[in-house]
Design a protein around this nucleic acid. Structure first.
Lengths: 197, 197, 197, 197
DNA sequence: AATGAATGAGCCTTCATTCAT
DNA sequence: AATGAATGAAGGCTCATTCAT
């Protein structure tokens, strides 16, 4: 029973279904039919709205990145000093909804996709760069630029590494301990720098 | 002209071809034909020796893990004190051959495979546990167990995270800076602990 | 904004769009969507007005035949003697607008359609027969019936054959030379018959 | 039950099946499955040996052209004077096997294909040029070049046109009358030229 | 020991057609 | 009068896998 104005609803449903199915399977070996079925529509409709499998994947990836990037931006707008902003980014990265197994699995899958798909790599690059800028920006206000660059990369690497380890570990992801570990890293680095001054 | 005793030669060639092809493509979407062609044999032979695609993948993963794990073991046997052993593990993780794009890509692909394949997950788990044991074992000799566990996870997460970031970054991987970053992390953590004592 | 009395306008637009699209593509592998888009309406409307793809094709074919047949009839009404009427038919067949690549391509496509579609074959048969009647009718006034039949077939075959050759040749169709060739054929045949009398 | 050395057998069978199916249907709207089934193999095998639908079509077209072109060449090697060679070409064009409905229909379909497929057009162009060369070559030995060019085009157009007319006409193709018509055309043209000399 | 031959299963994609609005 | 929404059906193509040699 077709009604007008369904396009945005279907698009959203399909993107969510894509992430769900990819997350459930753990990789990108999912079919348009599976996604469409999960969204409650025919495979043809998915093609109609997205033009193809790749573009649906990219749209899903974009959605994931927007959810994350949007949260980071919101945090940065409200946080106070540099150190608080770093904490905000870390908390955002390990926000409980970001840590849902399906989401993490989709992230991993998209990481891999980025190796073979230029557009995906670009998307990822933009957000990685934006995250890095935010971290470096905050750190340069409290440490020399040389250290800021290193610490920023350390934070990002820790975040990514913990993501993987949680994704492949059995049991609950335990975001609190992940946050604590990264926070501890930041504190330690800053303390050492202070003591050397 | 078939000769006797070819089996180990073919197996090895096929495993190397698999890693090469997977690395070149960036993911596990490779065909048996591609692998077989790269190894200079027929797809049927690959099937004959490994029994199927999944098992060839697992064999390739096992090979990768053995190369890495073997190196770690060798390092641990020759290294002196606890701190040196940690350095040994880090160096091993970022050994230049481990950092070849093809190898990194294969690692990533296998990480993802581990999400959906129990046998792969088990393989990965064994080696992760062994690595963790080595790190914790060394760290407990110089820090309280509580801190040793945290720092070990930090080291492992940093290693994994840096892997991903190098894999997806354009340009050369620069293992030296990766090693330096992790070493710095260890030193910093240990220094802080010392100063609080 | 729907208005009354749009049906004939839409039908005409769709038929012209069909011929245009078929001509542009060179064959009948065109979609309703392409045709509808070219006509500036929705595919559903094309379906609504013609009942289906086949019927739209037939309508387009009918239009093509009417344009051609109408021209022939007009020529025959105004021309004087038998020889002039033959010239009229030939000129009509190679009228410059009939020679537009799109029209030629549509003709060819419809020729092929006639092989598998009874209605199309009937349409083509009626017009072929009418053309033949006109030619034979004119020729019997100046030659014995036996020769008239042969020459009429020769004229028709030459026309058709030249159509194909122009359609598939690179460069401009050059209708003048085509007309000249057929005219020469008619003249030669008639001259020979005269000389044998 | 696979046996070695099947490739040429399968290729031939598939090409013949393609022509048969295309001929039976009257156009190129045939599926790989239909062709493969008609050849007694799986669709996958057809792809395996030809790489795709287009290439199978082109191979079939090449086969058709070779059958025809090969016959023409054979005729030209054995025929005596120029006039006999022209007769040879005409006879060859209307050889009874060339006139089989399926073959004619395939020819027509390939003519249409040539409009949209560059490779097909090239194939057709080569053979058209070769035929034209043969005709012009023979004609220039008995008429001025200017007339030779025109008559050669007339012969070719008549042949093509008669093909179409036979293909779309109900009843037997009657190659004899087609040959007679073209022969008569040649004789008439030559006679007229003689009488004007 | 090794391979050419062959296929079944499945996926992406397209498209004519229908339907409610 | 007109269309956006939606789908069933089908086609091209790929690929892991099997089999006889």
């Amino acid at each position: 029973m077709p009604r007008v104005g369904m396009e945005p609803i279907r698009r959203k449903a399909l993107i969510e279904a894509a992430i769900e199915v990819i997350g459930a399977r753990g990789n990108l070996d999912v079919t348009m039919s599976q996604i469409a079925k999960s969204a409650g529509v025919s495979p043809a409709l998915a093609h109609h709205y997205f033009g193809g499998k790749d573009q649906l994947f990219l749209a899903a990836m974009r959605s994931l990145l927007n959810d994350y990037g949007g949260g980071v931006s919101a945090v940065l707008r409200t946080s106070g000093g540099p150190r608080e902003r770093i904490t905000g980014v870390i908390k955002q990265s390990f926000r409980v909804d970001q840590f849902e197994p399906a989401i993490v699995a989709a992230w991993l899958a998209f990481y891999v996709l980025a190796q073979s798909n230029a557009q995906a790599r670009r998307l990822l690059g933009v957000y990685a760069h934006r995250l890095n800028s935010n971290l470096v920006d905050a750190l340069t206000r409290i440490t020399p630029r040389r250290d800021a660059l290193r610490i920023a990369e350390g934070i990002a690497a820790l975040i990514d590494g913990l993501y993987i380890r949680r994704a492949l570990k059995d049991g609950p992801p335990d975001p609190a301990s992940a946050i604590a570990l990264v926070e501890h890293y930041v504190d330690t680095e800053l303390t050492i720098l202070d003591s050397h001054r």
